[in-house]
Design a protein around this nucleic acid. Sequence first.
DNA 1: TCTAAAATCTTGACACTGTCAAGATTATCC
DNA 2: GGATAATCTTGACAGTGTCAAGATTTTAGA
Lengths: 201, 201
Amino acid sequence: MPAKKYHHGDLENALIQAGVDILFQEGIEGLSLRKVAKRVGVSYAAPYAHFKDRQSLIAAISTEGFKQLYTTLDAAAAAHAGDPKQQLVEAAWAYIQFAMQNTAIFKIMFSGVLEKEKDYPAFVEISHKTFERVVEIVRACQDAGVLRSAPPELMTVSVWGQLHGVISLALEGQISHTVLDRFTIREIVSFGIEQMSLSKT
Amino acid sequence: MPAKKYHHGDLENALIQAGVDILFQEGIEGLSLRKVAKRVGVSYAAPYAHFKDRQSLIAAISTEGFKQLYTTLDAAAAAHAGDPKQQLVEAAWAYIQFAMQNTAIFKIMFSGVLEKEKDYPAFVEISHKTFERVVEIVRACQDAGVLRSAPPELMTVSVWGQLHGVISLALEGQISHTVLDRFTIREIVSFGIEQMSLSKT
DNA sequence: TCTAAAATCTTGACACTGTCAAGATTATCC
DNA sequence: GGATAATCTTGACAGTGTCAAGATTTTAGA
């Protein structure tokens, strides 16, 4: 068991993980550089050896979130290879669940807490990769006649945009109780996908 | 011309307006109670006579944003009375434009900066009213056979969710350039609405 | 292996923030 | 007019992000 060393060893990842933990426990408000540092047991300025500033830490946490989201989506799709429509539905549901179970991280990923995404190549790469993965699923649906023919990226923005919009509004409490009292999120999402589908299952 | 009085006269609204101005000029980062107070020419603790805390000011600004959004949507719909589909398209476009022209306020309204919406009755009221206005437009579309028959609120969440999702992703830079290089936001939105429409125009 | 450079971490400092308490000033109402 | 309430100011405190200077450790080159 190593005693406290001057050098942490893997402070960068430790800080990211501590940030994730804080997000889970206290939400976005509780996330500060100093608190993250304290939680890891390191002085308040130590993070600056690894992150340029606060935004940079947030970018790293977001990147981590996207990695997890990508893995989840990919797994959901892979579990239903050969059935494009089911792939779409389950990937969509995985997206929703990720958002509901990791609300604080989801918001950081998508709700403008991160200001200049372009400055963070790793973030851009994984978020693009995630989008492309969804495009694949959508393209398969189009090939199978589940979704109508159109530029796949455009169709993806349309289908995924709806999904994203519904869950975003739900997380913000912006969906009327006249709806939430009568329909579950899953039903709302299913309805949305059926809306856009050609073949009914 | 009144010289500086000890009592401002209408500090509450002045603070809200100053907050809006700061949002336009500096974005969300620049919004602080002390800066708002300074801009109005009042001491840093003066706002506490009108707003319980920072969240309360943000709630007031969001409420103001919703009032404006409602007016805009209502005007767009009223301009096309008798043509439900056009009402939907133009209201949607008004929504998009509001988001693009008032990005910072839009984000505050919808992106979780405000934590406990329920604590602010005025906010809840106007946001519900706005939702209901959209439901009316959607219902008219259903009656006219433009949108399929379904519970209007559910259909509204679906249609409006898509709109909201697309513009949210766009504002966050999450829409791939392979899409944005080929399609305008208006085209994307139109595509989305056509997706859900029964009758093609 | 020894040493110079680089990486990492600590402490000190500064400006800024939200918030409260105590008191000053002004408006309101009986 | 005088009491009460509303409004505003100043002082204070704990947190915050960030930088600079220096301490410590690792790494790399000879």
